[in-house]
């Protein structure tokens, strides 16, 4: 392995990492919001919306992100919906992640005993107050391991962004391998940068999982 090459390539990978993180972070926030809204719709059994959310979940959980991105990026402009590659990445990741987050939140909501809801209602709280102050905080803490697993999954999924010409880590690696044939160095940096991005989250996930698995407060 050539040390000079590594030093030369390093800034390229650093920029790529920031791009990946930027899109990844925005996509995850979007997924989180979709997850909250979608799971609330299912939780309250909102008539028509419930069906729409159900169809959305099935559509996005049963197709690859790559195909979703191709559709958003290459197909939608043909019907007049033009968006940039970055927006496409955020949107694709958010929609895919949203479908998973809804399921995660939903099972968290189901894990909170019904009598907690009744207890809040008997204090005169509205449905929304009950959800917001009583059920959601418990559901989220139950969902934390699932949420972190989703975050890792989504950050890994960003590796397909290169197909819509976003200069992320994969794009950079592929480019350098193709142009300069410095395969070993390029792959080495690729692995290192993914480790830097995902290992800390994975470790935090393991610690947090042990702490909050049973929704334990007050330790």
């Amino acid at each position: 392995m050539d040390k000079d090459i590594l030093i030369e390539y390093f800034p390229l990978y650093k920029d790529a990492l920031f791009l990946t993180l930027k899109i990844g972070w925005q996509g995850i926030i979007l997924a989180f919001v979709i997850g909250l809204i979608g799971s609330a719709i299912i939780h309250f059994k909102t008539p028509v919306l419930k069906r729409i959310v159900g169809i959305y979940i099935e559509l996005f959980r049963n197709t690859p992100l790559l195909v979703q991105l191709f559709f958003i990026y290459f197909a939608l402009p043909k019907v007049g919906i033009q968006i940039t590659a970055q927006t496409c990445g955020v949107l694709g990741l958010g929609l895919l992640g949203g479908a998973y987050m809804i399921e995660t939140f939903r099972s968290g909501l189901e894990a909170v005993p019904v009598i907690q809801t009744e207890s809040a209602l008997s204090l005169g709280m509205s449905d929304f107050q009950t959800l917001w102050h009583v059920i959601l905080p418990q559901a989220i803490s139950i969902s934390v391991p699932g949420i972190l697993a989703n975050v890792i999954f989504l950050l890994k999924e960003t590796s397909v962004f290169s197909t819509i010409s976003l200069m992320d880590l994969m794009f950079t690696a592929k480019d350098l391998i193709g142009m300069y044939a410095k395969t070993i160095e390029s792959l080495f940096l690729l692995v290192v940068f993914y480790l830097v991005m995902l290992l800390p989250i994975s470790i935090i996930g393991a610690i947090v999982e042990r702490r909050v698995r049973y929704g334990q407060f007050g330790d």
Binding site: G124, M125, S126, P137, Q138
Partner: peptide
């Protein structure tokens, strides 16, 4: 919800909010 404010209820399983 208005009426429930006039009626307090205590459950067998306490149902304090754990968080």
């Amino acid at each position: 919800t208005k009426l429930r404010q006039k009626i307090g209820m205590v459950f067998q399983s306490y149902e304090l909010f754990p968080h």
